[in-house]
Computed example of a mutant assay.
Amino acid sequence: MTVRYRHYKGGIYEIVCEATMESDHTPVIVYRSAEGKVWCRPKSSFFESIEVDGALIRRFEEIR
């Protein structure tokens, strides 16, 4: 089963895998957009909460 996430700006993504940044061993999340483009960002950033318009929300929210 594929788990999908909605970015707070509206895009839909699925996690491809968790990887390790070679230079400093930071855990990163590799994820793919609905259009097929592949991205990565630090795991801590992917799952963090951010402030938007005064409200604390998740950067990526799991779509259930």
Rank of each mutant, 00 (worst) to 15 (best):
A34M: 04
K37S: 11
V16M: 02
F47A: 06
R58F: 04
A55M: 14
M21F: 10
V52G: 08
R58I: 01
R4G: 02
R58L: 08
R32G: 03
P42T: 14
C40F: 13
V3R: 14
I29S: 07
I63D: 00
E35L: 03
H25S: 14
R59F: 01
V16K: 04
K43F: 12
I57T: 04
S23P: 00
V30R: 01
I50H: 05
S49I: 05
R64A: 13
E35F: 00
V30Y: 03
R41T: 15
I63V: 06
E14R: 13
R58D: 11
G10I: 02
V28Q: 11
C40R: 11
S49W: 00
I12D: 00
T26I: 12
L56E: 13
P42E: 15
W39Q: 07
T26S: 10
S33L: 10
E61A: 12
G36A: 11
G11Y: 09
E62H: 05
V28S: 03
R6S: 12
K37G: 06
R6T: 05
S49Y: 04
I57R: 09
I29M: 10
D24G: 01
S44C: 13
K9M: 13
I57M: 04
E14M: 06
T26W: 08
A34W: 02
P27M: 09
E62C: 10
K9W: 05
Y5N: 08
L56N: 11
G11C: 07
E62Q: 13
Y31E: 02
E14K: 13
I57D: 04
E14D: 10
F47P: 01
L56T: 13
G36E: 11
V28I: 15
G36P: 07
A34E: 10
T26G: 05
Y5L: 10
V28Y: 09
H25Q: 15
S45G: 07
R59H: 10
I29F: 06
Y8T: 15
A19W: 01
R6L: 10
Y31D: 03
V52F: 08
V3E: 14
Y5T: 10
M1L: 09
R4Y: 14
R4V: 07
E14T: 11
R32M: 06
S45F: 06
V16D: 06
V16R: 01
S45W: 08
C17M: 13
T20Q: 07
D53G: 09
V16N: 03
K43G: 09
W39K: 07
R32W: 02
M21T: 13
A34T: 01
S23M: 08
E62K: 14
R32V: 02
V38G: 07
K9I: 13
F46S: 05
E14C: 07
R64F: 04
V16P: 01
E14I: 00
E35W: 00
V16Y: 00
K43A: 15
G10K: 03
H7N: 11
R58Q: 11
G36F: 03
K37L: 10
H25M: 12
Y31M: 02
C17W: 03
F60H: 07
G11A: 13
R64E: 12
S33M: 00
Y31G: 06
S44P: 04
R59Y: 02
A34P: 00
E18V: 11
Y8G: 05
I63C: 03
R58V: 03
E14W: 05
P42F: 06
Y13E: 07
G10R: 00
R4D: 09
V16H: 06
G54T: 07
K37P: 01
G36W: 07
D24K: 12
G11E: 15
D53H: 03
R64W: 04
